[in-house]
Each structure stands twice: as structure tokens, then as C-alpha cells.
Simulated assay, not measured.
Amino acid sequence: MNGKRISTGIRGLDLMLRGGLIPGRTYLVKGAPGTGKTTLAVHFAMAGVANGEDVLYVTLEEPADNIRADMTKMGFNLNDSRFTLIDATPTSERYVLVEDFFESFAGSMEKMTQAIKEKLRERRYTRIVLDPITMLKFTSPEEIEYRRAFLSFVKSMGKMGATVLMTSEFQRTDIEEYLVSGVIELKMFDIQGTLYRGLKILKFRGSGFDHSMRPYKITSRGMVVYHDRVISLP
């Protein structure tokens, strides 16, 4: 293990990362819908809460009530006072009323950065989740502006000492993968009629890591990563 690490909340993934994530950096979890990106993100958030940290979770696609209901069934306590869940989904009216600076937030990476900075002035959140960033890219009019805003966001969060985990449904995330410190990919395979799930670390700056595709499952208690098994594709 190289330096201080923080847990993802998933033991098998921590072992693949040689002890966990390096704090104060931004990480990307990518995968198709249904691969478990939100479950992994909630594990990360709740590991922070368990460690006595304040955590900010911004949902941009799945309504907050749905996340609370689904994750409560897995045993996560999303009502903890250290956990702040903001519903910034396009159909949500509540976030506009409750969090004024998150208004029209999902339409701009720059507005999102400013909104999170405002929250960080109120409270020292050491872990931040954006789930997913897909909508932010969809609504950006120019690729070059999105790239500039994304880089600004990564730098801003680093200066504030926050560890950020963002999810994406895009299979290709070129600029995001280039700018973040680590990339974790979740995949599903149909092998002779049986569905398998595989997790692979594509990038992890500043550390060695497990390069193998490892199987994982979504259970009634969350995600389990089998760090000592390998998926063998035919």
C-alpha cells in the first residue's frame, strides 16, 4: 500500500486497488445501465459516513426517493446526518425549491461546479458523488467548452480536498478518462445463457493495481467483488 488510502466500502475492490482510493482525487465508474454503478457509489458514500466524514451525493438521473428506497433494502442508512442527498434530476421540482443554486444545474458542468463549491462553503464534504454525469455531457452545446469545464471541476475539487466519484453510462469517456485519476469499468457478459458481471480497473494514477477482470455480484446487502477469481471468456 502506497500512502494513505480510503475505503470504497467494498472489500474486494479495495484489495484490487492495493488498499483503497487515494484521497483528494476524482474517479470515474463507467458501465451500461443495470451494472451497479449507483450501488458502488453508495458503498463509497456510506464508507465515508462510517468513517465520520460528511458526504454529498448528487443524483442527476434516478429520483432521490428511488435511491433511498432501493439502498435502504440493502441495509444502507441514507438518513444519517452526515449524508446529504440532493435530487438534481430534470423532473425534480424539490431540488429547485430546497437548493436554489442547483436550479438548472444539470444543464451545465460550470453551474454544477459552482453549486458544489457553495455547498462546500457551508460544510466540509470530504466525499462527493455525481451519479451520473451523462446528462451533463448530453446538454453541453460544445465539446471544447465541456472539456474546459470538466478540467476546471476536477482541479477545483482537488484544491478543496474532496474525493470525488462520478458515474457514467457512456461506453466511451475519452476526455473524462484522461483527466480523472482512476477509472473503474463494470460489465455484463452473457456466456452460454448465463449472465456474468465483471469489474476491471482501467486506470489508477499513483499506485499499482490489479489489472484482471474480476467477477462481482449485486446481492441483498450490496456489491460483492471476488478479488481472487477471474472471469474466463470463451
Rank of each mutant, 00 (worst) to 15 (best):
I86P: 06
V154H: 01
T89L: 04
L202M: 10
G75F: 06
Y216M: 00
S108L: 02
I218K: 02
D54T: 14
D70T: 09
G12E: 07
I22Y: 13
I175V: 01
I86Q: 03
I191K: 03
Q114T: 15
G158A: 03
R123E: 01
R147M: 11
E103N: 12
R172H: 14
E169V: 12
I86V: 11
G75H: 10
D131V: 08
G206M: 01
M135A: 15
T163G: 04
E110P: 01
F101P: 06
Y196V: 06
G48E: 06
E103R: 14
T26C: 14
M160L: 13
G9E: 03
P234M: 09
K119H: 09
I86E: 03
E143I: 07
M109D: 01
S168L: 03
Y95W: 14
L233G: 10
G34E: 08
Y196L: 02
T173S: 15
Q171M: 11
V129F: 00
Y27T: 02
S140N: 13
R25H: 12
D65Q: 05
D80H: 03
P215D: 11
T91H: 10
V183R: 09
S212C: 08
M160P: 06
G31H: 10
T113A: 07
V49E: 02
V164D: 02
S207L: 01
F204N: 15
V224S: 05
D190Y: 13
K203Q: 10
R121H: 05
Y95I: 15
F44G: 09
G48F: 09
V96D: 06
T39D: 13
E185A: 08
L13W: 07
H43P: 00
V225L: 04
L60W: 02
Q171D: 12
M46P: 06
G206K: 05
E118F: 05
R148F: 13
R82F: 02
S108M: 05
T26I: 07
L17H: 07
K187F: 03
A41D: 10
Y226I: 04
Y226F: 09
E99Q: 12
V49C: 02
N51D: 15
I201D: 08
R25T: 10
T39M: 13
V225T: 06
N77P: 11
T173A: 15
M46Q: 11
T84H: 07
T163F: 06
H211L: 15
F189M: 05
G24A: 06
K159T: 15
Q171W: 11
G193F: 07
M157P: 00
L78Y: 07
Q171E: 14
E62N: 07
I10Q: 07
M71E: 02
S232F: 11
G19S: 00
K200P: 03
T39I: 14
K119S: 15
E103A: 13
G3P: 04
G3R: 14
G12Y: 04
R221P: 01
I218W: 01
E176Y: 11
S232N: 14
E99Y: 14
P132D: 12
T173I: 10
V129T: 01
F170L: 10
G3L: 09
L17E: 00
M46R: 08
K111Y: 04
V98P: 08
G12C: 09
E103K: 14
P215M: 08
Y125S: 07
L56Y: 10
